[in-house]
Design a binder for these strands. Structure first.
Lengths: 151, 151
DNA sequence: AATATATCCGATTAATTGAGTCAACTTTAA
DNA sequence: TTAAAGTTGACTCAATTAATCGGATATATT
């Protein structure tokens, strides 16, 4: 039941981009440095975020990435889901499930997994990058590097 | 963010034992058959459940396992936690975390992970085996095998 | 006493996933 | 033209998961 580095790093990177919203393209190298992530690995993560329409890129020198929408329009849920797939405790309750279990029966465990899934979605879909920014400005010392290396 | 087979199989097995609560020792073989799990693997899962005081065993012929407490006293949360460890999205918010990240800083992502963790705990700690039994009798056709092979 | 049925325990293995690296390519500002 | 930066896919390595297996101990039944 752990998030992988994909979700954790991706969220850190998106928050970093959110703090720079409106500043023009930000290079992956600078994000990777601030957030202590391998650039090569970060490249892998930014790709699905771009395809999902969450960030847009500017190629070439002085290029980089920026949020495709305002921070208040991007939820933690969409970021994590893009990188990790559905945040469901089992495949059978994930939105994209394709008939992995027998739906003709009532399943007492599936009901539980659905409740877990709904509660997780409730949390992550309610938090936007703007909420994170506000929280950051209120409670941190305004040092971007303060995002800890949570495992 | 998926449960492993440990948690899923273990929950099915515990529910099976709950349905037979008061019937004396139930053999792993019979549970494995009803729930379509490998007996050998189930042995591995029942061991921590016994050590956690959730089931007790009777050795020898006609032996088996039974719940150590009434179904209403055993939550889904304690079962899953025993088999999977803390249901936290990251190590740094797990109860047994030992200083994996720098606590001198305020971390905007950690706050989110804590909320996810709390919401998951809220769900699983509120559901007992007795709730599952009641649900089963109300909504299923009383066929134990009806617990689907959720992945 | 012998046997069948169980739990118990540790070692081993097979398969999958996660995490990260790397190389080659395209685009574009300076 | 050159260097910076995005883009892509293949690849490696380690860790975890999911079992399997063999043998030891315990005990009800015959």
């Amino acid at each position: 039941m752990k998030l992988s580095t994909r979700g954790r790093y991706g969220l850190k990177a998106m928050f970093d981009l959110a703090l720079h919203f409106g500043d023009g393209p930000i290079s992956l190298t600078s994000i990777a440095e601030r957030q202590a992530i391998s650039v090569n690995y970060l490249e892998q993560l930014i790709s699905p975020l771009r395809k999902a329409g969450l960030v847009k890129s500017v190629r070439g020198a002085q290029g980089g990435y920026m949020l495709a929408k305002a921070p208040e329009l991007i939820t933690v849920g969409i970021i994590l889901t893009t990188l990790e797939g559905p945040l469901a405790p089992t495949d059978c309750v994930a939105d994209d499930d394709e008939e992995t279990c027998d739906h003709t029966h009532y399943c007492v465990t599936k009901v539980i997994y659905e409740k877990i899934y709904e509660s997780i979605k409730g949390v992550v879909n309610a938090i936007t990058l703007q909420h994170m920014i506000d929280d950051f400005h209120e409670n941190s010392n305004h040092v971007i590097e303060n995002i800890c290396e949570c495992k």
